[in-house]
């Protein structure tokens, strides 16, 4: 019984982090058709922000709060220097952001070295209910992730910014003709997407080894989640992330992590092939 509870909790925390990463990716992809291959490196930068600030003596939670700001600022620079030149060339965004990811990875190697760093969890305590004990930090991580995911949904589905954003996604020219500054909306969405990646990286930093290669391990599952769920409605990320992350985590109960990941990727590729628009449908209007 206790074992099952722990498996489910582990699954939930992995799924939530994956959804957080994928959500940033889909905001950028759904909004601007920009495929950001450097998203994994922005996630990595979030984790390194914590490494950096903690080394400078900042408390953990302050470092976590700073991560989306730092990474969002990096995102702003990337948008201004790179992305805005290639908005109408989606395939080139893959290549250009790929070059960016290589450069970012190497910049981190130059600054912090190729070795992995570890971030101390702010609380080592575990909490127990019956015979189930679970680290408090992981529970907290889940709560924070749920809150952020809910906030992103609220922004895009309930606020005026979200209304304008959905209009720009559906019909950019018409939105511009109504006086909406589409460039500003694109830039804001890109920064939100990168800040989400940074925040996700900061939150999981205590749980994984922080190294320059960590981005890829989340980038591919995040992309696959989006493709499985569908890049249209935001809810597609929940479905895709839940399926990909959940199955992967569950499969590790019986299989080695490598085999589990291979099996999940293969299943996901079959789903993507059979339903290219994703389980919840593709990019449909606003």
């Amino acid at each position: 019984m206790a074992e099952i509870a722990i498996i489910l909790l582990n699954m939930a925390s992995y799924v939530l982090v994956l959804v957080l990463v994928a959500l940033g990716l889909v905001v950028v992809f759904g909004m601007m058709r920009v495929i950001n291959m450097a998203h994994g490196e922005l996630f990595m930068l979030g984790a390194y922000t914590v490494v950096w600030l903690q080394a400078a003596g900042a408390p953990f939670w302050l470092a976590v709060a700073a991560a989306p700001v730092v990474v969002g600022a990096v995102g702003l620079v990337i948008e201004a220097a790179l992305i805005r030149h290639i908005y109408r060339r989606p395939l080139d965004t893959i290549l250009a952001t790929w070059g960016l990811s290589i450069a970012l990875k190497q910049a981190v190697v130059l600054i912090w070295g190729p070795a992995s760093h570890s971030v101390a969890a702010p609380m080592a305590a575990a909490i127990g209910v019956g015979d189930v004990t679970y680290p408090v930090y992981r529970l907290l991580l889940m709560a924070v992730a749920v809150a952020i995911i809910a906030a992103v949904f609220w922004i895009f589905l309930r606020t005026d910014f979200g209304l304008v954003a959905r209009a720009v996604i559906a019909r950019p020219d018409t939105a511009a003709a109504l006086g909406i500054d589409t460039r500003r909306i694109y830039r804001a969405s890109f920064v939100i997407g990168t800040a989400l990646a940074g925040l996700a990286g900061a939150l999981v930093a205590p749980l994984i080894s922080v190294d320059p290669q960590m981005g890829l391990g989340y980038l591919i599952p995040a992309f696959i989640s989006i493709m499985v769920g569908g890049a249209g409605p935001l809810a597609g990320v929940l479905v895709g992330g839940g399926l990909v992350g959940g199955t992967n985590n569950l499969a590790t109960v019986w299989l080695s992590p490598v085999v589990a990941q291979i099996v999940v990727f293969l299943l996901a590729i079959v789903i993507i092939r059979l339903r290219p628009q994703g389980l919840l449908g593709g990019r449909d209007g606003a």
Partner: peptide, 23 residues
């Protein structure tokens, strides 16, 4: 599949093959 989806899927397959060979 074409375009970006094809790119990501082929990337994932290369990743799978590399992991398979490593073990």
């Amino acid at each position: 599949l074409s375009g970006a989806y094809l790119a990501i899927v082929t990337l994932a397959i290369a990743y799978i093959l590399e992991q398979t060979l490593k073990s």
